[in-house]
Design a protein around this nucleic acid. Structure first.
Lengths: 321, 321
DNA sequence: TTGTAAGCGTTATCAG
DNA sequence: CTGATAACGCTTACAA
C-alpha cells in the first residue's frame, strides 16, 4: 500500500509538502497541490489512520460499551447514537466486557457512552480522570468529565398511575421485573408513590422477570385468583404481553375484567387486541442527544444537561375501566 | 499518561527490556522483570494501542459494516458476532456509510463483515485485494480474500411450500416484501418453484413492504375479496402479523378460512393467537460462524465454507387446514 | 540478559 | 511556498 512518501516522490516534492496538500492546508502552490493530488489518485493513496492517530492523539472513534445487543430498546438507542456519530464523522466502536476496558486503557477511543453495569463506577471515574469524556446511561454517577442520564422511570410511572387513579381505578397490582434491575425498582417506586398519595394502602405484588414467558406464568396464576386486582401495572411491555396472553387463554376479558399497562412502547403493542396502553421513551432521540453531547465534550464545547430522555404516556385500550 | 519510557526509567532499564518484560517474552531476568512490572503497576501504565498497532500492523479490530441497527434479526446476528469476537480478544467496530469505507481505507480494521448494500462489489473487491479478509452476508460475491454467505431463502421456502402442498393446500397467495429486497425475491422464487413442481399454475400476488402496517393494509383488502386464496405465504413475520390482525378484525378465521405463514421466527410469533407458523434462521449461530471465519482468515488459517446459515421450518398453528 | 537504534506513517515545527 | 527533521509510543533486529 502506498504511503505519503510514495505520493511525495511521485509528485516530486517533500513529504511535508505532500502532507500539507493532502490535508488542504493553505500555503501550497495550486500547481504543486494539483500535482500531489493527482499522484495520490494515481497511486490510490489513502492515509494510514493509525499513524495519523498516533501523531494527532485523536482517533475519531467513540466507544459504546454495552453488555450485549439483545433487546429492542437497545437497538433503538444504538441506532440513534450511530446516526448522530456518522453525521459528525465519528466512528462508533461497540464493545463489551474486557475489550471495553482495553479500548479506554489503550486510548483507542476519544470518548465513550456506557450502557454496561459491569463497568464499575470506580473504573469509569479512573478513565474519565484521564480526560476521556464519558456518558453513562444506566445509573447515576457524578464526577469530573463524567456525565449520566437515566430514564425517569419513577416520575413517569407515578404520573401514569395518578392518571389511572383519576380515571377511577383503585385496585392495583404490580407485575415486577427482576429485583436487581435498576429500571424495575424505580418504576415500582413511582407506582408505590402514586398509590400512597391517594391513600391506597394495599396492592398486590407479582414477581416476574421482564419476559413474555414470565408474564404468561404469572398470568395463569392471576387467572385462578378470584381476588385478583382490577388493574395490573407491568414493569415492561413484554411482561404485559405474556400476562395478557394468559388471561385471554383463560377467557378473562382485558380490559373489562382486568385492565393493564406496560412500559417501553414496543412496536407490537399497537397490534395486540386490545391495544396495549404503555409508556414510551424516545430511545432514538436519547441516543442522538447523548452522542451529540459526547462529540461536544470531546471538542471542548459546553453541553446542555440531558437529565432524562423524553417519555410519554400512550393511552390505547388495555387500561380502560 | 505514562509511556513505556516512564516505566523503563522507573525500573532503571532500557525501553526494549521494558517492552520485553511487559509482553511476557522470555530472556528477561525474573528480578528485572518483576521490577518492571512493579513500575508499570505503580505508574498505572497501559500500552498505547495506537502506537502498537502502527508498529505491528494489526489493530485487533474487526469491522462490521451495516446500514443500521434496526430490525430484530440484525441484532441477533450482531450479538453472535460480538460474542465470538469477544471470546477471541477482537474488538468489534460497527459502522455504516462513509465511515465504513474510511475504516478500510485507513487500515483501522484487520478484516470486516459486511451487511450493507451500499458498499458495492467493486469497492469491496478493491479492499479485499489489499489483503483484508472480507465476509459478505447480504449477497453473492466471489473474489480473492472475499467470501460470502447468504440465507438459503429459496431452498427453504420451497421446501416449506412443498410441505404445505403435501398437507393438502393448493390455493396460494404470496404477500411480498419490497421488490428490490434480495431476500424477498429469493423467497418468492422458492415459492413459485414449489408450485410449479406441483403443476399449480396460478397464485395471487400481494405487494407488501415487510412491515406490520403494510401487511395490515393488504389484509383489509384480502378480507373484502371473496375469491381470496386459502393460504397466504408472507415474505416475513411482520407482514404476517399485520395480515393476521386485519383478518381478525374482519372476523375471518385463521387458519380455518385463511391459513398463513411467515419467515424469520420473531419471538412474538409464539405468543400470537393462533401461533405463527414460520421459518427460522439461526442468526446468532450464523454471526458466530462468520466471526470465527474472519478471525481464522486474519490469522492465515483455512476455513470451512459457510454456504448458508442453518434454517428450519417451524410448524405452529397458522398453517393448518 | 540487556541495551542501541531503526522504523511504522503521519503531523508539525522551524528554517530556508 | 517548500523542505529537513523531530516527534508520537511502541516493537524488534542486532549488538554488546
Amino acid at each position: 500500500m502506498p504511503t505519503i512518501k510514495d505520493v511525495a516522490k511521485r509528485a516530486g516534492v517533500s513529504i511535508s509538502t505532500a502532507s500539507y496538500a493532502l490535508n488542504n492546508l493553505p500555503n501550497v502552490h495550486p500547481e504543486t497541490k494539483q500535482r500531489i493530488l493527482d499522484a495520490a489518485k494515481e497511486l490510490n493513496y489513502y492515509p494510514n489512520g493509525i499513524a495519523r492517530n498516533l501523531k494527532t492523539k485523536k482517533t475519531g472513534n467513540i466507544g459504546v460499551f454495552v453488555y450485549g445487543f439483545s433487546g429492542p430498546i437497545f437497538s433503538d438507542v444504538l441506532e440513534g447514537i450511530r446516526q448522530k456519530l456518522q453525521q459528525n464523522d465519528y466512528n462508533i466502536i461497540v464493545s463489551s466486557g474486557k475489550a471495553s476496558k482495553n479500548l479506554l486503557n489503550e486510548r483507542q477511543v476519544d470518548g465513550a457512552i456506557i450502557f454496561d453495569n459491569n463497568l464499575t463506577d470506580e473504573c469509569l471515574k479512573h478513565y474519565a480522570s484521564h480526560g476521556y469524556p464519558l456518558f453513562v446511561l444506566d445509573r447515576f454517577i457524578k464526577g469530573e468529565n463524567i456525565h449520566s442520564t437515566v430514564i425517569d422511570n419513577e416520575g413517569i410511572v407515578k404520573q401514569f398511575i395518578l392518571q389511572m387513579i383519576a380515571m377511577g381505578h383503585r385496585d392495583f397490582g404490580y407485575l415486577s421485573g427482576p429485583n436487581d434491575a435498576f429500571n424495575n425498582n424505580r418504576r415500582y417506586q413511582g407506582f408505590v408513590e402514586a398509590l400512597k398519595e391517594n391513600h391506597i394502602d394495599k396492592h398486590r405484588f407479582y414477581q416476574g422477570d421482564f419476559t413474555i414467558e414470565g408474564g404468561y406464568k404469572i398470568g395463569l396464576e392471576i387467572a385462578k385468583d378470584q381476588k385478583r386486582p382490577r388493574f395490573i401495572y407491568c414493569a415492561n411491555d413484554e411482561s404485559a404481553i405474556g400476562l395478557m396472553n394468559a388471561l385471554h387463554e383463560k377467557n378473562i376479558d382485558v380490559p373489562r375484567e382486568v385492565a393493564l399497562a406496560g412500559f417501553d412502547n414496543i412496536s407490537l403493542g399497537e397490534y395486540l387486541h386490545p391495544k396495549l396502553t404503555t409508556i414510551g421513551i424516545d430511545h432514538s432521540k436519547w441516543g442522538k442527544d447523548v452522542a451529540q453531547a459526547v462529540i461536544d465534550l470531546i471538542n471542548g464545547r459546553k453541553i446542555k444537561i440531558i437529565s432524562h430522555p423524553e417519555g410519554k404516556i400512550i393511552l390505547r385500550e388495555t387500561h380502560q375501566n
